[in-house]
Design a protein around this nucleic acid. Structure first.
Length: 868
RNA sequence: GCCUCGGUGGCGGAAUUGGUAGACGCGGCGGAUUCAAAAUCCGCUUCUGGUGACAGAGUGGGAGUUCGAUUCUCCCCCGAGGCACCA
């Protein structure tokens, strides 16, 4: 055993040993319990960032721990390879997205390998290869024929200068990020997945996902947003609108229908267009509503505006004429694109009615009374008894719902309905670097799916986009084709799919990554699926995880997989943060400095008070701790860390600094602390091994001191087993091992049994650390005299008898305040404990002059004496 | 604006889920070793008062339940993630 801990040699040796034995390659082995551990695959952006390192370390710790539990563990890795950054890089560097992507993959694969992940690399794939996306296209054609995919218009951000569609991310303060032009909303035809058909199941099966964080399930429930309500029709006729018809709205509060004083429609609603025909100012307002981006956050925070029209609809119950308004807060894409407004009982309607002096008619008796004076109070929105509602007066919410529903039904002006907030998933993208949508547009036959024998529709890889629309739409060699049905000249669809589609089924493909007879080999897929543990960023809590659940159900309904849900357990990891430092120049602009280039100054207590740039010694401002990002220049390069300290130190620091679902603050001195700990482990093992083989452990013949050491060993086993196996709290598991090391370093080594106890302690340290720091553990395990590699060693077993103690220390409180400690025999009776507590010197002192009312004894913990 | 989560020493965090607040680590201070430095080792380190034993306060702020609250309830403040074309 080398005297010095040398991570470079150790890590190289361990990785070579794993490679030579194909240690992490797995096959379907009948009879062996499987464990599928999956971390969200990376987008090949160029190089690994700390978020990746954290994600893959967490996954690797779990995978290696499960292997030590004897399971057949699958941990794969691949590349989410389509996406916008490749197109942006192409525009900046004149490189084809394909070449850029593949070279990034090659670089990042090496980086991942240097982390020593227990990954089966034989299953690696990239989603941008035809071998992968052809099956996505195949499923698309199936779903199109089943009607699960359909075409309709959708709203996009349109940059009128660059003549291109922009992603929400590319719209900054309502302007295009490259052109600076004011963005407009534009309607274009797109393909949609009918995810709303699965809304009910996506909602209800969340209840079965007991291994998911409540937080994520709550977010998904709210996103799907099931609401039971009423569809209400407001009729209109020749006199009020020019032709007869009905304005449809949906409401969750039909009990307030008698309080409706106007209706509001979206700017894109047909009634708005009709009203504008005779009123140029309305046309201008509708145009104004088209300004700005399409994202909900933008729309929800913009100023609520509306315009009256000359149109009226009839109240479905009273026949009263209600004015039609056009409002920018009503969205065409949500529900019916129209709402009934009840200002007395809806906050947004209240604000709008107040602003535009519309009538406010209270129809519910709330805890605020029968009237609704300004300003708005939350109580106005409560449910309660109906008032001012004619025949419905006196009813409560449920009976009003039923009664009003009955009347509407009789009049054929509405009916109860369930509505979801979830909208169908639009997947058409007017971009190049994505999976081509396998549709052929024929003037005779309409939209024709590409037949199986013509799949895949291959994306040409030698294209460099220029930011002005989709290059495919300018490539006749791509879009010119013949109709598979009528053989007439036809045009191929040039839109590509949302990249969320690739990431919605990759987890299934890993089961049979090179299968060429179908999307998945059902036998392999059902062997491994569902994923036992899925790990990824909390930012994916809704979209990616919902789409993947949806796709799994689509695949189930195609007969490809048996299970209903793709991910049994879910761990959402927090972000990686680092300190920020900046200077403000004369113009007020901030220049950000990387923490690696900054030195901090501390006061006497160690609190950071100032910071300066190392290169010029001049002060910089301290900007707080934020997510590592290019914009704040606070990223720490994982490669530099691995090169300097080794993978084990990085892994240990990341797992120790905070629990996986919390954010993690990067700290250089924390990394050094992790390295220091590994050196201590190495040094103690080296000393111990250097003194020769220890005697066999004889547990029945130990001194009290030896029992104490052994007790520390088994306390660590208990703590680490709970923390890693049940709670995924690696930080406290590591703390338990550190506590054990503190004991082992001070333990006597003179006697035979001293050394036997120490041997057990060091073996335990090695095994408990093996999932977290696999390289050093590999070397230590060999040095401690073990023949089989540590990756195949079983997780240590707790010996309860090692924990037994003769006496316990109890806490003594008087009126809930800590007043002392007493030592009692472990088997002392309640009476004996109480008597010992009452006799305690401090108890006597603090109860002097008081009478004892009650004594609370918590066995094994404390005694609280209540006195007054 | 809406949905979700979080806030504990100088810092990262811990607290067996209602029972000793601050485990473990970082930083800081003091000491040992060294010609010196690095490395390493030992001790102290929530705040306030006190030489001290000790006392009081303390888990974002405010109220409440309880013998006892970081933990449960209500209100408020601040921060983070998501909002359907970033991935």
């Amino acid at each position: 055993m080398q005297e010095q801990y040398s991570p470079r040699d150790i890590e190289h040796a361990a990785q070579t040993a794993w490679d030579q034995t194909d240690a992490f390659k797995v096959e379907e082995t009948p009879g062996r319990e499987t464990y599928y551990c999956l971390s969200m695959f990376p987008y090949p952006s160029g190089k690994l960032h700390m978020g990746h390192v954290r994600n893959y370390t967490i996954g690797d710790v779990i995978a290696r721990y499960q292997r030590m539990q004897g399971k057949n563990v699958l941990q794969p890795m691949g590349w989410d390879a389509f996406g916008m950054p490749a197109e942006n890089a192409a525009m900046n560097n004149k490189v084809a997205p394909a070449a850029w992507t593949y070279s990034n993959i090659d670089y990042m694969r090496n980086q991942l390998k240097s982390l020593g992940l227990a990954v089966d690399w034989s299953r690696e794939f990239a989603t941008c290869t035809p071998e992968y996306y052809r099956w996505e296209q195949w499923l698309f054609t199936r779903l199109f024929e089943k009607g699960v995919i359909y075409r309709k218009n959708g709203t996009v951000n349109w940059d009128p200068v660059d003549q291109t569609v922009l992603a929400n991310e590319q719209v900054i303060d309502g302007r295009g990020w490259r052109s600076g032009a004011l963005i407009e909303k534009r309607e274009i035809p797109m393909y949609y997945f009918r995810i709303t058909d699965y809304a009910e199941e996506l909602l209800s099966s969340l209840d079965n996902l007991t291994g998911w964080p409540e937080q994520v399930k709550t977010m998904q429930r709210n996103w799907i947003g099931k609401s039971v309500g009423m569809e209400v029709h407001f009729p209109y006729d020749q006199a009020s609108i020019g032709h007869a018809g009905k304005l449809k709205v949906f409401t969750t509060r039909p009990d307030t229908l008698m309080g409706a004083t106007y209706v509001a429609v979206a700017a894109e609603h047909p009634l708005a267009a009709q009203a504008a025909e005779t009123d140029p100012s309305l046309l201008a307002f509708i145009d104004e509503c088209k300004r700005g981006g399409v994202s909900e956050a933008d729309i929800a925070t913009q100023e609520k505006q509306g315009r009256a029209t000359s149109l009226f609809v009839e109240h479905p119950l009273t026949g009263e004429k209600l004015p039609v308004w056009i409002a920018n807060y009503v969205l065409m894409g949500y529900g019916e694109g129209a709402v009934m407004a009840v200002p007395a009982h809806d906050e947004r309607d209240f604000a709008f009615a107040t602003q535009y002096h519309l009538p406010i008619k209270p129809v519910i008796r709330t805890s605020a009374g029968d009237t609704t004076p300004e300003p708005w109070q939350d109580a106005y929105g409560e449910k309660g008894m109906l008032i001012n509602s004619e025949e419905f007066d006196g009813l409560d919410f449920d009976s009003a719902f039923t009664a009003i529903g009955e009347v509407l039904k009789q009049k054929e002006l509405g009916a109860p309905r369930t509505q979801f907030r979830l909208r169908d998933w639009g997947i058409s993208r007017q971009r190049y670097w994505g999976c081509p949508i396998p549709i052929i547009h024929c003037s005779n036959c309409g939209d024709v799916p590409v037949p199986d024998d013509q799949l895949p529709v291959v994306l040409p890889e030698d294209v460099v986009p220029d930011g002005a629309g989709s290059p495919l739409a300018r490539m006749p060699e791509f879009y010119e084709c013949t109709c598979p049905r009528c053989n007439q000249p036809a045009r191929r669809e040039t839109d590509t799919m949302d990249t969320f589609v690739e990431s919605s089924w990759y987890f299934a493909r890993y089961a049979s990554p090179h299968y060429d007879k179908g999307m998945v080999d059902p036998a392999a897929a059902n062997h491994w699926l569902p994923v036992d543990q899925y790990i990824g960023g909390i930012e994916h809590a809704i979209l990616h995880l919902l789409y993947a659940r949806f796709f799994h159900k689509l695949m189930r309904d195609e007969g490809l997989v048996d299970s209903d849900e793709p991910f049994k357990d879910l761990l959402t990891q927090g972000m990686v943060l680092a300190d920020t430092y900046y200077r403000i120049d004369a113009k007020g602009a901030r220049t950000w400095f990387n923490p690696a280039d900054v030195e901090v100054e501390r006061d006497a207590k160690g609190k950071v008070v100032r910071a300066h740039l190392a290169s010029d010694g001049e002060p910089v401002e301290i900007g707080g701790t934020e997510k590592m990002s290019k914009s704040k220049n606070n990223g720490v390069d994982p490669q530099a860390m691995i090169d300097q300290y080794g993978a084990d130190t990085c892994r240990l620091f990341m797992m120790f600094a905070s629990p996986p679902d919390m954010s993690l603050e990067w700290s250089d001195s924390g990394v050094e602390g992790a390295q220091r700990f590994l050196r201590r482990v190495w040094r103690l093992a080296q000393q111990h091994v250097g003194s020769g083989r220890p005697a066999a452990l004889s547990v029945d013949n130990l001194t009290d001191a030896q029992k104490d050491v052994r007790r520390a060993t088994h306390l660590a086993i208990r703590q680490a087993s709970q923390d890693i196996g049940q709670h995924h709290k690696f930080n406290t598991a590591i703390a338990a091992v550190m506590t054990l090391m503190n004991v082992l370093e001070k333990a006597p080594q003179a006697e035979d049994q001293d050394r036997a106890v120490l041997q057990e302690g060091l073996e335990t340290v090695t095994l408990l650390l093996a999932p977290i720091v696999p390289h050093i553990s590999h070397a230590l395990w060999q040095a401690l005299g073990q023949q089989t590699p540590v990756i195949d060693a079983p997780w240590p077993v707790l010996d309860e008898s090692a924990l037994v103690q003769d006496s316990l220390e109890l806490v003594i409180q008087v009126n809930g305040k800590l007043r002392g400690h007493i030592q009692v025999p472990a088997d002392a009776s309640r009476e004996a404990v109480e008597a010992a507590a009452r006799a305690n010197e401090n108890v006597l002192r603090f109860t002097e002059g008081l009478s004892i009312r009650k004594v609370i004894v918590v066995p094994g913990k404390l005694v609280n004496i209540v006195a007054n």
